[in-house]
Design a protein around this nucleic acid. Structure first.
Lengths: 200, 200
DNA sequence: TGCTACATGTAACACGTTACATGATTGT
DNA sequence: ACAATCATGTAACGTGTTACATGTAGCA
């Protein structure tokens, strides 16, 4: 019930693959889920304590003095299944790049082109990373029942990045058609405000 | 400096196109920027008051008694340019669908397929909406200096949705290859936990 | 010896949503 | 008269990040 935020899901999910310390869990989330998920220590530690109290994970001696390895329990696995079955809570969209492009007239066409090219370069970089990752995983985890599921998430990243590449080219063409004012600040059409200001 | 959240940017941006009441501003953000941005009243009202105190917007009499129309000032336009020029603060990724797919073995292949098909249906729906929107806007705003910029954001939405459609097909094929356990809950391979559970 | 990586945890803060409280105007 | 929509605002809450405080273990 208590819609405890999806941190619980990510934490239980991580431990469902492999018992770990909180620290390692964070690294795993960063490295493996990094392209579609993130958690900070400030979330992970309290969540693990709560899960321990609920009996969903158990604390064992860790690799170092004072460290703990967390192991998921049966009730934890059941809880994970429950959480995964909940409807997806879509995060409200907030795309800073598109916000800037939308008000591109004010920002200036030059800056917009720069932003677009940066986005494309980023996408191309990720594309290479996804390919490497997919190749490495397909070898390492050959035969793992998790592999096909993991590959779908990598595929998502790749298609998304490909989409960005194609989009940037189209967007640049659109801006080519109407490069009204290329200037950074000075001769920007600010007159709107003064015109509308007295409209009533 | 004061990285005042990008709400300020969206609010000034909205007013830069057209003076509005706070209420109308929220509707405009929902309807026009909806596919890549969102703001709630709880953000908009305090932000407008702050912007007024800083002289970036001015309050005029609104269309109703007790309502105010906000008009951007020259300093507001300058501030908007400044905000748009700031580096993009990327929101930490949180994709609930991919999280579920990654732990798809626990969720079950059937549910994963359902989620994928839902995602595809959503994408197809948006695709149609983007096309309508682009056609409508190209007519209505013909010649507007904002039009090409707005079209780039619609293009982004379209490419993103197309990417989802292509991805879902690929993902379904990946899951086809290794449909280890199709069962929802019962005979799921939970033995991991019991194995680890007594391992000490 | 001292740096780096491993490891745990908390407190302060920023951000944003939801729900609530209130009321005017328009249309039926 | 009443419902729907326009309109404003706040308070409580949840959630998540950052910075800080603390300490161990391995290695150069």
């Amino acid at each position: 019930m208590a819609r405890r935020s999806q941190t619980e899901t990510a934490v239980l999910g991580g431990l469902s693959m492999h018992p770990m310390t909180a620290y390692a869990l964070r690294e795993a989330i960063r490295d493996v889920l990094g392209h579609f998920w993130s958690e900070s220590f400030g979330q992970i530690y309290p969540t693990l304590n709560a899960l321990e109290q609920q009996g969903h994970v158990e604390r064992r001696e860790g690799p170092r003095a004072g460290s703990s390895t967390f192991v998921i329990t049966d009730s934890g696995t059941a809880r994970l299944h429950e959480l995964l079955s909940e409807p997806i809570t879509a995060a409200p969209p907030r795309n800073g790049l598109l916000l800037r492009l939308f008000f591109g007239r004010t920002l200036g066409a030059r800056k917009c082109r720069e932003l677009l090219l940066e986005a494309k370069a980023d996408a191309v970089r990720s594309l290479a990373e996804y390919d490497d990752l997919a190749r490495a995983l397909s070898e390492e985890e050959k035969g793992s029942p998790d592999l096909p599921y993991i590959l779908t998430t990598i595929s998502a990243g790749r298609h998304s990045a490909e989409g960005v590449v194609a989009w940037v080219d189209e967007a640049l063409a659109l801006l080519e058609d109407a490069p009204v004012n290329d200037a950074p600040v000075n001769d920007a059409p600010v007159n709107d405000a003064s015109t509308n200001g007295e409209s009533r």
